[in-house]
Amino acid sequence: MKEGVRSVVEPPLRWLGERFLTLAEALGQVTKLFRQTITWLYKVEARNVMAQMVEIGVRSFPVTSLTSLFTGMVLALQTGFSFRKVFNEPLYIGSVVGLSLVKELGPVLTAVVVAGRVGASIAAELGTMKVTEQLDALYTLGTHPVRYLAVPRFIACVTMVPLLTVYADSIGVLGGFFVAFVRHGVPSSVFWDEIRLIKLHECYHGLIKSIAFAVIIVVTACYKGFTCGEGAEGVGRATTSAVVVSMVLILVSDYFLSAALVALGIGR
């Protein structure tokens, strides 16, 4: 009887235990990677940081522009229709578009776009370097891979993602203004007066979250790249996993970060 119970209970418990151990090991490695990155922040080559800023920031401008422009436009379109139904006229489009973008959609959408474009590229590049022994070569040439590869990407990501977020907010608001003005006939003075009502601490709310998202993207991508499995299959898995994990973490952490920031009075 006891044996029967054991044979039923043991496999799921073993499965759970193994998953827990794997997760604990991964968390330990991510923490170590983050600590090493922070330790070597001051020892970075400026040339590498600039190259990564161009790759992560400048090359993300076109896709960020498109995403935020159309997000602002559709937000204005839907808000106009909804409020027209309730109040019989398109009220508060500027406030809704501005606050939604600055506090929520700007940082989250920019982070999701960067996670897809840059996170995948970092994981694939580092993963390929691992399977072709380039990471080992760095060690033998007196350079720690975290210092040479992760630190410049970290600095570039943490500086460029907030900048991209500010840019995305602006483009989104412009898109929203265009639809509000052309489609719903909202006077420009009304729209911009509502935008001017957005407080600075509400902008900080979005910016602080964008910095946290940047850390999530770059640490996840570097970790997945450094721990990539063998061969092309390993690189493919690391790349997919880096994007999926980053996006999930961005969306989950967004709720908790928002709650924490509002509790602290930032963007309430």
Binding site: T128, M129, T132, E133, Q134, D136, A137, Y139, T140, L141, G142, T143, H144
Partner: peptide, 28 residues
């Protein structure tokens, strides 16, 4: 790292850094 400076290592596939030129690889 100090001990590694006493070793030169020729990897099976070369393990050259793709993003650098040949000159930069040798100078690394």
């Amino acid at each position: 790292t100090k001990v590694q400076g006493r070793f030169g290592y020729l990897f099976q596939g070369g393990a050259l850094f793709d993003s650098l030129t040949v000159g930069e690889n040798v100078a690394f």
